[in-house]
Every structure is written in structure tokens, then in C-alpha cells.
């Protein structure tokens, strides 16, 4: 039994590491725009993983995760401003910890709530963060936000690996993609271990049945606070990665709309699954391409009122339809198809 468990842990490790390595290999051959797309999706994958942990594995919903992402992003920018010599990993960890702390503080009163009350409270929190940041301008740069003091640039070994003719911009885009992949890889790895751990099983018990959870002696409030804290930490890590890869942070980047986007992507990909989070990130990264295809093929002027709101209309509608007809999202549909194929054989 023990051997089996170890075995699955090893297998998870092998699968994750080899996919990350393969993707990193790809960053050498794909055009720089694909690398930027990868980078953009990466932070979102981490944010969805965080929300997923809360929603999928503990049954709570947050409509304020952009608020925690803002803590991670501004934490990163502020740290870099005052302690620019700190290694990137340390800065990221500290920013993540800051966000986790915010999650803890919001999570403690939130344990008294469930379902819609909790969702409403996270919405109020998420909506309150951007104006707060704007008004703490000496620390946060106000409405304009902050430029990062240092951003990750391609190390010399990577530059020398690429042809001399490759522009620095291209190599840097590749480096950011590799860096993001690394962070995502670690985040996925930790999350899948968490999922298999005692805590992860406890969370699912809380989600499925409060009474059963109490019966087996789980401390419900503590489990919920823990879920909230871990979830906020992931959002903070996502915000930090976003700051590093964008090179700047602004309160306008973390409005309630982003929280809703993350929630939508989680549902579309499939609540409670890691593959769903990755799918969500891919959808996010390619949504702009999809949109230009849509405006092109329908002849809608992308700068018209309709064109500039088409994305939200499309995804808002898709979210509703998904929840009403296939609440387990794309990954749920895929496993359904697989199950059918298997039984028909």
C-alpha cells in the first residue's frame, strides 16, 4: 500500500517534470509570440489552481481572488523597490506569504459563512482592494502603479545557446516563458501532492459533507481557514509571476473583472481538477486570438462597442451555458467521453 502511494507520487513527479522539460524544449523552436502567450497563460493557471483548491476541493467560492493576486503583485514590486538585491525566488516567496496572510485574515471570519454569504464577502473584499491600492500611493504608486526595479532577463548561457542572430527580445521572451513554466511546474507539483495528502482528502470531505467531516473529528473551521489561506497563497504567487513577466503593476490590472475571469476559466476547464486549471490557462492565453478570429470571420469591427465587448459577452454566455448543461467543464466532458469509449469496448 505504502509502496503504491510512493509509486503514484513518483509517477506524478515524472509526468510533471517531463512535460515541463518538453515544453521548455518547445520554447526554443516556437516564435516569440507563442512564448509570450505561454507566459500570459502561466500566471492564470496558478491563479485557477488556487481558486480550484478553495472551490473544487473545499466547496467554497471566491469572487475576489484578483484582490489576493494584487497583494502578490504589489508585494513583489514593493519588495523589489526596497530590497532589489533579494533573489527572485525569495521575493516571490515573500509576496506569496503576504498574500497568504491576507487570505488568513479574510478566511477567519469567512469560516462562519458558507456558500453565497462567503462569495459576497469575497466580492466585497476584491472590489475594495484596487481603490485601497490607489490611495496608498506613497507605497504603491497610486493609480499609475509601479514599474519593477528588476525583471528577469535571459542569462548568458541561454543567449549563447541561441544563434547570435536571435534578437535579445526573442531570447528574453523565451526566458520568461521558461521561468513561468518552471513556476507552474512547481505549483502543479505541490498542488497534486496536496490533493493526495491528508489535508486534501480532508478538504474534499468538508466539501462533500459537513456532517461526515465533523463525525470523523475534522476541525471544520480550521480546515476552511487553511483552504482559504492556501488558495490566497496561490493567487499571490500568480500575481507575483504576473508582475515579473509584465514588468509593471497597476491597480487597474486587478479589478473584479479578473476575479470573474478566473472563476469562469475554472468552471470552463473543470472545477476541482488540475487538468481543468491548465485548460483554463490555455483558453485565457488564446482568447485574444480566438476573438480576432471571431471579429474577422463575422466582420464585426473590433473597435466598435460590440467588438470591444464581444469577449466578455462570449465568455459570460459560455460560463452560463457550461454551468447549466455541463457543470464539470471541459475536463468533465473529456473524462465522460473516455468512460464511454472504455465501456463500449
Amino acid at each position: 500500500m505504502n509502496f503504491l502511494r510512493q509509486n503514484t507520487t513518483t509517477r506524478r513527479l515524472v509526468v510533471t517534470v517531463s512535460s515541463i522539460v518538453a515544453l521548455m524544449g518547445l520554447t526554443f523552436v516556437v516564435p516569440p509570440i507563442t512564448n509570450s502567450t505561454l507566459t500570459r497563460g502561466a500566471a492564470i493557471v496558478i491563479a485557477i489552481l488556487g481558486l480550484n483548491f478553495l472551490t473544487g476541493w473545499s466547496g467554497q467560492v471566491s469572487i475576489g481572488h484578483a484582490g489576493f493576486m494584487a497583494f502578490g503583485a504589489f508585494g513583489t514590486a514593493i519588495l523589489l523597490k526596497h530590497f532589489s538585491s533579494l533573489p527572485i525566488a525569495a521575493t516571490m516567496l515573500l509576496a506569496t506569504a503576504l498574500s497568504a496572510l491576507a487570505g488568513l485574515l479574510v478566511g477567519i471570519p469567512a469560516t462562519r459563512l458558507s456558500g453565497p454569504y462567503l462569495a459576497g464577502m469575497t466580492l466585497a473584499f476584491g472590489a475594495a482592494v484596487p481603490p485601497l491600492i490607489q490611495n496608498l500611493s506613497s507605497l504603491t504608486g497610486g493609480p499609475a502603479g509601479l514599474q519593477l526595479e528588476t525583471i528577469p532577463t535571459a542569462p548568458s548561457w541561454l543567449r549563447s545557446l541561441r544563434h547570435d542572430t536571435t534578437s535579445l527580445i526573442t531570447v528574453n521572451a523565451q526566458w520568461l516563458a521558461m521561468f513561468s513554466l518552471l513556476v507552474v511546474g512547481v505549483a502543479v507539483m505541490l498542488m497534486s501532492n496536496l490533493h493526495a495528502s491528508r489535508t486534501g482528502r480532508a478538504m474534499r470531505l468538508v466539501r462533500d459533507n459537513d456532517v461526515a467531516a465533523e463525525l470523523v473529528g475534522l476541525n471544520l473551521p480550521r480546515t476552511r481557514v487553511l483552504a482559504f489561506t492556501i488558495s490566497a497563497a496561490y493567487a499571490g504567487l500568480a500575481g507575483s509571476l504576473m508582475a515579473f513577466t509584465k514588468g509593471s503593476v497597476s491597480p487597474q490590472d486587478f479589478l473584479v473583472g479578473l476575479s470573474i475571469t478566473i472563476l469562469s476559466l475554472m468552471v470552463l476547464g473543470g472545477i476541482g481538477t488540475i487538468s481543468g486549471a491548465i485548460l483554463g490557462g490555455v483558453i485565457y492565453a488564446y482568447s485574444d486570438n480566438f476573438l480576432s478570429w471571431l471579429t474577422n470571420s463575422t466582420g464585426i469591427d473590433p473597435y466598435s462597442n460590440l467588438g470591444s465587448n464581444l469577449k466578455t459577452i462570449f465568455f459570460g454566455g459560455l460560463l452560463i451555458v457550461t454551468m447549466l448543461t455541463a457543470p464539470r467543464g471541459i475536463s468533465g466532458l473529456i473524462s465522460k467521453v473516455f468512460a464511454k469509449v472504455r465501456t463500449s469496448r
Binding site: 466547496g59 469572487i63 459570460g316
Partner: peptide, 13 residues
């Protein structure tokens, strides 16, 4: 979670 998500989707729609 189902009504929450649907109504949030309706809000943005």
C-alpha cells in the same frame, strides 16, 4: 456554487 456562478456569469454578460 451553481447559482453563484450562473449569476456571476449573467452579471458580466
Amino acid at each position: 456554487i451553481n447559482p453563484i456562478v450562473v449569476m456571476v456569469g449573467f452579471l458580466s454578460l
